[in-house]
Design a protein around this nucleic acid. Sequence first.
DNA 1: TCAGAAACTATAACCACTATAGATTCAGAT
DNA 2: ATCTGAATCTATAGTGGTTATAGTTTCTGA
Lengths: 196, 196
Amino acid sequence: MPTTMGRRERKKAQTRQALSEAALRLFSEHGYDGVTVAQIADEADVSIATLFAHVPDGKEALIFDDGAERRLWLVAAVRDRPPGQSVLEALRRCMAARGPFTNDLPPELRSKRDLIVSTPALREYSRKLWIASEGSLAEAIAAESGRDSSDMTVRALARYVLEIPELAGTEPDPLAALNAIFDLLGSGWPESPKQA
Amino acid sequence: MPTTMGRRERKKAQTRQALSEAALRLFSEHGYDGVTVAQIADEADVSIATLFAHVPDGKEALIFDDGAERRLWLVAAVRDRPPGQSVLEALRRCMAARGPFTNDLPPELRSKRDLIVSTPALREYSRKLWIASEGSLAEAIAAESGRDSSDMTVRALARYVLEIPELAGTEPDPLAALNAIFDLLGSGWPESPKQA
DNA sequence: TCAGAAACTATAACCACTATAGATTCAGAT
DNA sequence: ATCTGAATCTATAGTGGTTATAGTTTCTGA
């Protein structure tokens, strides 16, 4: 069993990447709705059937990976945070370094992010990818807080954290929005009973 | 200007209702994916083009109204809550009486709810309808708390409240889940810093 | 070297949805 | 009462995403 990938897996990865690059290039040029999957398949020099074999989730998934990386990143951020740091603080820093919340990115990634943020179908799919990590994140949080990962409070917190990109990503100052939301999650909404 | 609707509006409402009923009946019988819009149009005795004229949001929207009622209900719950009651408590009671959180419903509505909860496409659309009220709810909350409705904290709270049906709707005990989530939103997540 | 798995292809189909143009029905003003 | 214009409905034909099928090529492991 060779340490390197066989030719087959290598070709597969190449095809998948050709599809991603073709899709991103065409989307950037003509907009998401201005491009058909047939054009993308052509540009990557494969058949339409092959395109869907590589990207079973459909057109929107073309420019995304499967989200496994995000999942690992989140879990690691919670589990390996420095001593004295809270779970929320660890998550806040983790997310602040990603996606819509930083401009410290190469220009290709920045334009990709802008494309996603400005295209509803892609924003929705991005949210789906984040939320797919809910279970893993809930387990990580549960492990750190001595609760069960099926505890609704834990699941809700995980979900709410993962909704932040969608919620704050379109704000004029995304980072400030991110911080405001984490403050809310940490301290709760101040009671404001109606005057009697 | 007559107090009652003209014949035209009456017929329009009839057609729309015929479509809703046909869709619900067929979905319940054969499952959402087991029914085509052509079958629904046939069952309601209209053309496919007419179906889409009545329901521009597409197949999933067939069994829903436009969500205006929900919006009014939520805003009223916040604004007209009894003296001494907090905003969150008012929203908790409002939601507890609706959708997935009560069984105090006629059997037709119960089976409709079960169909929605068990069909991903319909669950997603239901969430969309809830979230469409985010702006209105944020305004209502802002008015009660002396903040601005564009305040990220207000918007986040509104969003998080409106996500509750999707988040808690599939739990074994939805009402308990609802209460747990409102407790989290009210008090925040207890800090659990890592031991040094 | 051989057998089988995996990837790719062309083709054809299905379905949601849209566009168009024409027919019918209704509402409001004259 | 009638006329005009707008709303509604219709059939038809298309677009585009997605899947199914069946057959071909390419790689892998025995």
